[in-house]
Amino acid sequence: MRLALAYFLGIVLIFGAWALVSFSLAWAKGRPILPYPWEAAVAAGENIWTLLSAFGTSALRFLVALVISFFLGLPLGLAAGFEAKLEQFLSPLIYLLYPMPPVALLLFLYLAFGLGEVVRLVVVVMALFFQVVVAAQGAAKFIAPTHVVAVRSTGASRWQLYWHVVIPATLPSVLTAARVSVGLGITMLYIAETKLGILLPPSQGLGRFIEYYTFRADIALAGVVALALLGLLFYVVLEVLEKRLCRWKYVGVKGGS
């Protein structure tokens, strides 16, 4: 209840600030620049079905990209951090590729994958994948040796070692990293849906929605708000997932073992 109230206050505050900025800009320039929140709200209402459909498409796209990033990035990152031999070999590769922005490769991605759904997913996956890999590798490097010895001494197989130690030990860091990367992921989603979505109707993703209504500032702004809400949605989902799956992190004395 307190949390709901805090969110409500936050929303009121943001909309208040937004209205203030709109007013100041209009006053300074002598003409309307940024539509008022209520104008955007009316525009959202008038285009609600297109907007909802765009939201749904973007959410699904992001979810699929997130899941793919986990499925590919988690095993690679964990192995690269936990297996000393693999680490020597994979670390340089990962660190060379990690800072490379997929945006810089848009042209080649377009040439390689065309303008279909695949290329949009590839762009978002490329961004999230490296976040997951680097977080998993970092966490897997610092697994307590006593946990490994405890499980190895029972006669565990390599797979059992991963299942009982490596995965649970690194899950909190990986989920946190994924949560922090939502912002980056949403940016990449926007770029993918605008730059690589020029053939799409406005209902096929929020990026496309915003671009399509470039000249209707109030509608475009409604799309921007929806995009922010999409980010919030994934942020919250990942946080709830972490609290659920890593309950052990939140018990006992704060700062205790």
């Binding site: 006593t146 946990h147 499980v151 001494s153 029972t154 649970p168 890593c246 052990w248 073992s257």
Partner: peptide, 17 residues
């Protein structure tokens, strides 16, 4: 590792999760 041999670790080595 032999399955009929058990080891109690110095700090118990419990898995916190």
């Amino acid at each position: 590792v032999r399955r009929d041999v058990a080891l109690i670790l110095q700090d118990a080595g419990l898995l916190p999760w």
